[in-house]
Simulated scan of single mutants.
Amino acid sequence: MDEGSHCGAKSESAPLAKPRAGGERGDLILNGSSDVDWSIIGLNLLYAVLGVVLMFVAYKVIDLLTPEVHFAEELQKGNLAVGMFVAAIFIAVAIVVAGALN
């Protein structure tokens, strides 16, 4: 075997991928323009705010449905089970919001 080959492969080096100019999804734009679609950024910010609001609403609803457990007090005491439960609520809401956006 010669120095440049591995396992009988050709020693020619070819680029792994050719970036193309264009606006198709997944293509790399190489023309140097910095056009930003502000409506997409605005929608993403709106969805982020909506997600935070929905997480807060879900927390308050669960807090109202479980009157015998005071989440804020238990969290201040360092109750890890309550902390994990609140985290699970937030994760569940995040999964639902993400699924609704796709």
Score class of each variant (00 low, 15 high):
K10D: 13
I40G: 04
A92C: 06
A88T: 07
V96Y: 08
A87I: 14
E12V: 05
K60C: 02
A92M: 10
E24V: 02
A100G: 15
F56S: 11
H6V: 11
L64K: 13
G32S: 10
A72P: 02
G22T: 00
K18T: 15
I29M: 03
N102C: 09
L75P: 04
L45C: 06
D37M: 11
K60W: 08
L30S: 01
W38R: 03
G26A: 15
A17F: 06
Y59I: 02
E24P: 01
H70L: 03
V82S: 02
Q76P: 03
L65K: 12
I29E: 11
D2I: 14
A21V: 01
L64W: 03
E24A: 13
L101P: 00
N44M: 15
L46K: 04
E3L: 12
A98M: 09
A94Y: 09
I29W: 05
A21H: 11
G4T: 09
D37S: 06
A72D: 12
V86A: 02
K60L: 08
A100R: 07
V61Q: 05
A81P: 06
C7H: 06
K18S: 01
A9T: 15
W38S: 02
V97L: 03
G78W: 15
H6W: 03
A94G: 08
K60Y: 08
E12Q: 12
P67A: 01
E12T: 14
A14K: 11
G99A: 07
A92H: 02
I91L: 10
G51S: 12
S11W: 00
I91T: 11
L80C: 08
N31T: 10
A14F: 13
P67N: 05
G8R: 09
D37W: 03
P67G: 12
I89P: 00
S13G: 07
F90P: 00
I62D: 00
S11F: 00
N31G: 07
L43Q: 11
F71R: 03
E24M: 12
A58W: 05
V86D: 00
S33T: 15
A98I: 10
S33C: 01
L46M: 14
I41S: 04
A87V: 14
N102K: 04
F90A: 09
S34G: 14
Q76T: 13
P67T: 01
E12A: 13
V53F: 15
V82Q: 00
L45S: 03
R20T: 07
G22K: 01
S5R: 10
G42F: 09
A21I: 03
